[in-house]
Computed example of a mutant assay.
Amino acid sequence: MNAWEIHHRRTAALRDVVTELDAGADLPWSDALAALFGDRAGLLVALHDSFARRVTGRIELALELHDLPGASVAEAWQAVVTELPGIHRILRAYADEPALARPDANLHRTVAVAAGLASLGAPVGIAADAGRAFVANAAHIDVPARRDGWLRERLSFRLMKASA
């Protein structure tokens, strides 16, 4: 099996796992998953990667379109939690899994930097702690309501600015 086939099989398997998780199942495990991810830790890391990519993408878009970094990052985080509830639930349930320590610290560091709570030069542990504290309170951060047409206005402004 070549790398492309492995990638497609892993992607399809992750889709199936996410469907099960969204239906309320615990982390599934089978011989087929073992062949693709090695062990449960490998599957958890793959799920974390999916969650982190979505969060990072949402944060980048939110920061590009909005002027309030803290509120934008909180809004992005909450949107991903809503979109990927099964993954979020499992990542919280398996938060003490050693294989998730580094990717989790990196994700929370990204959150802290994006929210303006840490600099890129800050030690990862300190920045990650700031990101964790931010995420713990993200649901309570006031995100100003957007008026109709705000997205179109921001995109038009960005496109005009980029073409100038």
Rank of each mutant, 00 (worst) to 15 (best):
M1C: 06
H7F: 12
H8Q: 15
H8F: 10
H8C: 06
R10T: 01
A13K: 11
R15D: 15
D16I: 06
V17G: 02
V18G: 01
V18M: 03
D22K: 10
A23T: 12
L27N: 07
W29M: 08
S30F: 12
S30R: 12
D31F: 07
D31R: 13
D31M: 04
F37D: 01
G38P: 01
R40T: 01
A41R: 10
A41L: 02
L43R: 00
L44G: 02
V45W: 04
A46C: 10
H48K: 08
D49G: 13
R53N: 09
R53K: 12
R54D: 02
V55K: 01
V55S: 00
T56A: 06
G57M: 09
G57N: 10
R58L: 07
R58E: 14
L63Q: 07
L63K: 05
E64D: 10
E64W: 01
A71T: 08
S72R: 02
E75K: 13
E75T: 10
E75H: 14
A76C: 13
A76Q: 03
W77T: 01
V80F: 08
V80D: 11
V81S: 09
V81A: 02
T82D: 14
E83K: 08
H88I: 03
I90E: 11
L91K: 03
D96L: 13
D96W: 10
E97C: 09
P98K: 15
P98F: 13
P98Q: 15
L100D: 02
L100T: 04
R102W: 15
R102E: 08
P103D: 06
L107P: 04
H108L: 04
A112P: 05
V113C: 07
V113A: 08
V113H: 04
V113N: 03
V113S: 00
A115T: 05
A115W: 05
L120K: 15
G121W: 14
A122H: 03
P123R: 12
I126H: 11
A127N: 00
A128S: 14
A128C: 10
D129N: 12
R132S: 08
F134K: 06
V135E: 15
N137P: 09
N137M: 13
N137H: 14
N137D: 15
A138M: 13
H140L: 15
D142P: 09
P144S: 11
A145Y: 14
A145H: 15
R147Q: 13
R147L: 08
G149N: 12
L151S: 00
L151T: 04
R152H: 11
M160P: 00
M160W: 00
A164R: 15
